[in-house]
Simulated assay, not measured.
Amino acid sequence: MDRIKALRIIENRAAPNCRRVRIFLAEKGIEIPYDQIDIMAGDHFKTEYREKVGTYRVPVLELSDGSFLTESIAICRFFEMENPEIPLFGRTQLEVSLVEMWQRRMEFELLWPIAFVLRHGNPKMTVLEDQCEAWSVANRPRVLVGLETLNKQLTHNQFIVGPNFSVADITAIVAVNFLRTIRVEIPEHLEFLLNWKATVSQRSSIGA
């Protein structure tokens, strides 16, 4: 059986989930063609797009067998298996488990609350969301709690899970950079988080 190969990624550069994949691939040194779609114009809601890839989400990885992979972390895992030399999902049994845990926590406790504030509170997002303003308001304090949680975890760690940069850090830096869309800055007293952000931001992959 021929090995299934990655052909291209369909994405929107402004979308945080797409940025997670780009940073991941840059860390791995993997180059792949990218095709852009305009989500603010509703390209991903078009019938032909959904029938082709099976969802209205981005990013999407097209494979050589004609199938499509969706969800950013699923796409990252595909490339992790192909290129294990620079492990971003952990090295040991415990580290793999901790990376999985913190990656999910950074989604649930930081990235998603930021997205909910934006998508339900910004009038421009009505093209993407049936808005509920109360949900935007409810998630704003959750963002600050998430930042406090991340700062605490970084108190004795260079990266989120110890000395090794991982996909948990990728999710977190994408979320932290996404704060600008809801006009939130990291409080000055969260010094460990601020130092981590400065360190991670120097990685060449962050500009991918």
Rank of each mutant, 00 (worst) to 15 (best):
D169I: 07
K197S: 03
R180L: 02
E51K: 13
D65T: 12
I30G: 10
D130M: 13
R20A: 00
T47I: 09
D169L: 04
F165K: 06
L94C: 10
T92N: 13
F108P: 01
F178W: 08
D35P: 00
C18L: 03
T126C: 05
R13L: 06
P84C: 09
C76T: 12
K46M: 10
T47A: 11
G66T: 11
Q103N: 14
R183L: 10
A41K: 15
W112S: 05
I182K: 01
A74H: 10
I182M: 03
R8W: 10
D38Q: 07
V184L: 14
H44R: 05
L194Y: 03
E80D: 13
F89T: 13
T155A: 11
R104T: 13
E48I: 12
V184Y: 08
V117H: 04
I73V: 13
F68T: 02
R91F: 06
E27T: 00
K46L: 10
E133A: 10
E11L: 00
A134P: 00
H189T: 10
R142Q: 15
P163D: 13
D2T: 12
I114D: 00
A134L: 00
V184I: 15
R203F: 06
A172T: 03
F24E: 06
R22H: 01
R183H: 13
T126K: 14
C132I: 15
H189I: 07
I73Q: 04
Q36L: 12
A14M: 14
M81E: 15
S97H: 07
D169G: 07
G90P: 04
M125Y: 14
L193P: 00
Q153T: 14
L190I: 07
P59E: 02
T47P: 02
E80N: 11
T47Y: 13
V99C: 08
N122D: 15
A74P: 03
D130L: 12
L128F: 15
D35S: 04
F24R: 03
G66Q: 13
E80H: 10
W102I: 01
G90Y: 04
L147R: 00
V117P: 09
I39L: 11
R104I: 13
K28L: 04
I75K: 01
M101H: 12
D2C: 07
R203A: 02
N12Y: 01
G29W: 09
V58D: 00
S67N: 13
A115S: 15
R140A: 07
S136P: 11
A168L: 02
Q153N: 09
H189G: 02
H156E: 15
T126Q: 13
K124A: 11
I170Q: 03
T92W: 12
R203N: 04
Y34I: 09
R3C: 09
F159M: 06
Q93V: 11
Q93P: 06
R22I: 01
P84T: 15
T70H: 11
L110T: 02
A26L: 02
E129H: 09
I32M: 10
F178D: 06
I39W: 01
L147Q: 00
P33W: 14
I75P: 01
A172S: 08
S166R: 05
T171I: 05
N12S: 03
I23P: 04
R203Y: 12
S97A: 15
G66H: 14
A208T: 11
F45N: 09
V145F: 08
A172P: 01
L63G: 09
E129Q: 15
F79H: 06
